[in-house]
């Protein structure tokens, strides 16, 4: 355990010491622009996935089959998520050791993991026999559960993310 923890600390320090992390720290406009990209990407992830979540909950777009909504929405979600992950990694690297200790960043990563587990469970279990129920306005319990968990995770991720900015004062 200690060895693993030690390695992580060293890894975060090495991230912090890279030349591009220094640019993000020292250049006045690099950090805000990457942040703009991160906010844009996250709002697109949340804005798109919540349409699917609300459809799974039977609260929106009830006359459109779930499979159609999936195909409409998920490509946007994945592209936006890739952008959010890359930009988020850059922001993290700019001050890795400090961010790694931040409880809100840790909570955010935990919720992200939970959202990932929920998504995997949805694809492996909740969407079973999709063609049988996808056109029903009211979806099976397992699909509603997946929608609710996802929605709560993403609200939590946005909140935790916003709180990181209030608890780390590395930038004005």
């Amino acid at each position: 355990m200690t060895i693993a923890a030690l390695d992580l600390t060293e890894l975060f320090q090495r991230l912090h010491d890279t030349r591009w992390a220094a640019v993000l720290r020292e250049n006045d406009s690099a950090f805000p622009w990457v942040e703009c990209l991160h906010v844009l990407a996250i709002t697109l992830v949340v804005g798109s996935i919540s349409v699917l979540d609300l459809r799974l909950l039977g609260l929106a777009w009830r006359d459109r089959p779930v499979g159609r909504v999936l195909r409409d929405i998920l490509p946007i979600t994945w592209i936006a998520f890739a952008l959010a992950a890359v930009s988020g990694f850059l922001l993290f690297a700019s001050n890795a050791p400090t961010y790694a200790r931040n409880p809100f960043l840790q909570a955010k990563m935990g919720l992200l993991l939970l959202a990932g587990v929920n998504m995997t469970a949805f694809h492996l279990w909740s969407r079973r026999n999709l063609p049988e129920w996808e056109s029903e306005p009211r979806t099976p319990f397992r699909a509603r559960l997946a929608g609710a968990v996802s929605l709560l995770c993403w609200v939590g991720i946005v909140a935790a993310g916003r709180w990181i900015g209030f608890t780390i004062v590395s930038h004005p």
């Binding site: 844009l40 709002t43 697109l44 804005g47 919540s50 916003r162």
Partner: peptide, 16 residues
Amino acid sequence: PAVQTLHLLAIAALMG
């Protein structure tokens, strides 16, 4: 921070 979180969630809905 709470108000900004709400602001961000509304931006998400609007952008979507």
